[in-house]
Simulated scan of single mutants.
Amino acid sequence: MAIRAVPADVTAFLLDIEGTTTPITFVKEVLFPYIEKNVKDYLRAHWNTAECQEDVKELRLQAEEDSKSGHAVHILSSPREEGPLEQTMQNVVDNVLWQMSLDRKTTALKQLQGHMWRTAYASGQLQGEIYSDVAPAIRKWREAGNRVYIYSSGSVEAQKLLFRYSTEGNLLELFDGHFDTQTGQKVESESYRKIAQVIGCSVNNILFLTDVTKEAKAAEEAGVNVMVVVRPGNIELTEEERAHYAQISSFSELALSAYGS
């Protein structure tokens, strides 16, 4: 097992989820298919709730923005233009499935998904899958005085559900905070500067762990320390990427001076 020393200035760990703490297969083969299969039934059951109506409102606003930007989008009619309820709900379903087919990361989509997953986790239909090396490593980092945060395209609520109802038990107490696309897109350098400002440290005090090199590049450009996580099923790195980025295949490969290398 190769050991990677954590840079001496690091006092905060920032973690991606998909492909980093959680297998890509869980997201692609469990979480997303659950949405695709159940979105229509969920809308029927929750349509009259304030939360669901807020979700639909956000999806409608996103559709309007997409249309203005020239996207060939499934338009959601305004409340005044809505026809029969069943057709209105089907329009929402079509928009959600269209966004998912393009793997979009819009806040409106992630918000609805998070609310659907909450229902599924609470009822026992879903359980978050976490790599077995994750929790033990985080506990060591925290014991050494470091803080640990999550930064994912999934909504903060969806993040908390995954770690609360995980295969390793309730892990929420291990994290000092959560960030999602409301902070900014993960491929934009400014997002990482904002995170540093929010948690009250310099960018060079952060170590970002992700499997996505576009995210790693953005964080690096902001001055954040970066390591790329290589897990089974993750996108294979190019020769150039392997030469440029430090890599780990398990959190257990990270060594802090507090507990040796």
Rank of each mutant, 00 (worst) to 15 (best):
residue 39 V to T: 12
residue 52 C to L: 06
residue 47 W to V: 14
residue 53 Q to T: 02
residue 37 K to M: 12
residue 39 V to H: 11
residue 42 Y to L: 13
residue 43 L to G: 05
residue 48 N to I: 08
residue 51 E to M: 10
residue 59 L to N: 00
residue 52 C to E: 08
residue 54 E to V: 01
residue 58 E to I: 08
residue 64 E to T: 07
residue 56 V to M: 00
residue 56 V to R: 01
residue 49 T to M: 14
residue 58 E to A: 10
residue 65 E to F: 05
residue 56 V to F: 05
residue 63 A to I: 01
residue 50 A to W: 08
residue 44 R to V: 14
residue 49 T to S: 15
residue 48 N to W: 07
residue 40 K to R: 15
residue 43 L to M: 00
residue 65 E to K: 09
residue 60 R to F: 06
residue 55 D to T: 06
residue 63 A to R: 00
residue 46 H to R: 15
residue 61 L to I: 04
residue 47 W to D: 12
residue 48 N to G: 10
residue 48 N to L: 08
residue 66 D to C: 08
residue 49 T to I: 06
residue 38 N to T: 08
residue 57 K to Y: 02
residue 56 V to C: 04
residue 61 L to S: 00
residue 47 W to K: 15
residue 48 N to F: 12
residue 50 A to L: 15
residue 63 A to G: 03
residue 62 Q to V: 03
residue 53 Q to D: 04
residue 56 V to Y: 02
residue 58 E to N: 12
residue 48 N to K: 14
residue 54 E to A: 11
residue 54 E to G: 10
residue 41 D to C: 10
residue 64 E to C: 07
residue 56 V to N: 04
residue 51 E to N: 14
residue 41 D to R: 15
residue 65 E to Y: 08
residue 66 D to P: 05
residue 43 L to P: 04
residue 52 C to A: 01
residue 55 D to H: 01
residue 41 D to M: 09
residue 66 D to T: 01
residue 61 L to K: 00
residue 43 L to S: 09
residue 55 D to A: 06
residue 55 D to S: 08
residue 39 V to N: 08
residue 48 N to V: 11
residue 63 A to S: 02
residue 38 N to C: 10
residue 38 N to M: 02
residue 66 D to M: 07
residue 48 N to Q: 13
residue 65 E to T: 13
